[in-house]
């Protein structure tokens, strides 16, 4: 347990540096945008901007909605938040198509599929409604006003950096991925692997196991990996459920293994605070929402120069030590955004 405590201190040190970097980067970004917002009320426009998330009820998108509302208030525009309540293109598509009838001034879309949503996007474009993709993207990006996405490779890399330092660059590290073939998971794993191999050559990196985002499966996989590798020092769960399962396995075994996870959902944050997850990659959904509204406004007011596309946002690293620091916890996802 003492050793574990030491390793946590190490994570704390390592990641506070990261957070500092990330916050600087973010504040730099937000500093430029409000200047455009300042011009907004002067134009006197009353724009309605539609925001269609991957699924309405997920904390990540509630957080994005909150960011969008913040920007909308500054700019004096209205955000119409509409979507399906499950991650399913078949449910999202009709929502997007029916929005066309309400003639919004712009569409902010989190496509739940990289190609299935493209025909609906074309309908908006032919009606001269600007479209911005947020968080996820489309295969065919032609005609889009902007793409805003979070850098999954960078997130994976940041997790590798923090995890590698926490374990002192020695031992075996396992990866619990979600569904084989999911592009976000692949990017996170690639980023993790690249940084781990480059920065911590003494670490043995195992091939990923696939939990299919089922907590119980992730748990049993980590239990098995602990038996297979005496020197297992760290586990990276590339999404919330995989991290939760890994954390449970490690905690129940009382093992000295560092767990890194992804996404600050209420469940993973609880595990982070209790110390079962030591490192958490947090996506900046507030900023994604803000930027999306700001870019849409810029496009509508003809201020194309304010748009930087594709805009790739860096992730924040939270740790058990800094989880209660408001500068970190402000990035944690909001279960329900009060409009």
């Amino acid at each position: 347990m003492l050793k574990k405590h030491n390793s946590r201190t190490a994570i704390g040190l390592a990641s506070s540096a990261f957070v500092l970097l990330a916050t600087v980067a973010c504040s730099g970004a937000t500093a430029t945008e409000p200047s455009e917002g300042a011009d907004a009320p002067a134009t006197g426009e009353d724009f309605t901007i539609a925001l269609v998330p991957g699924m309405t009820t997920h904390p990540a998108y509630q957080t994005m909605y909150c960011g969008a509302l913040q920007a909308a208030e500054e700019l004096g525009v209205t955000v119409d938040f509409q979507g399906a309540n499950a991650w399913d293109p078949a449910q999202q598509l009709p929502v997007v198509q029916s929005l066309l009838a309400t003639s919004p001034d712009a569409l902010l879309l989190v496509p739940s599929d990289s190609s299935a949503l493209r025909p609906a996007v074309d309908q908006f474009l032919s009606a001269d409604i600007p479209v911005i993709t947020v968080d996820t993207g489309l295969e065919d990006t032609s005609g889009l006003t902007a793409e805003i996405m979070s850098d999954n490779e960078q997130g994976g890399g940041a997790a590798a950096q923090a995890l590698g330092e926490a374990i002192g660059g020695e031992g075996t590290v396992a990866i619990i991925s979600g569904v084989p073939g999911a592009t976000t998971d692949i990017a996170r794993v690639d980023g993790f692997r690249a940084v781990m191999e480059e920065q911590f050559p003494n670490v043995t990196l195992l091939e990923p196991e696939y939990s299919r985002s089922v907590v119980a499966t992730a748990e049993s996989q980590v239990q098995s990996l602990m038996l297979a590798h005496d020197d297992l020092a760290g586990v990276f769960g590339v999404n919330g459920n995989s991290a939760t399962g890994a954390a449970n396995a490690v905690a129940n075994a009382g093992a000295d293994i560092v767990v890194a996870g992804y996404d600050a959902e209420p469940g993973t944050v609880e595990q982070l605070r209790s110390g079962n997850i030591n490192i958490l990659v947090v996506q900046d959904f507030i900023q994604e929402g803000q930027l999306a509204v700001q870019y849409a406004y810029a496009a509508l007011t003809g201020d194309e120069s304010a748009i930087e596309t594709p805009r790739v946002l860096e992730n924040i690293i939270a740790t058990t030590e800094n989880a209660d620091d408001p500068e970190v916890s402000k990035y944690f996802y909001i279960p329900e955004c009060q409009a």
């Binding site: 699924m55 309405t56 009820t57 997920h58 309540n85 959902e265 329900e336």
Partner: peptide, 9 residues
């Protein structure tokens, strides 16, 4: 389930 939970854990 998703209606009630909002799809989240």
């Amino acid at each position: 389930m998703n209606l009630i939970s909002g799809g989240a854990e």
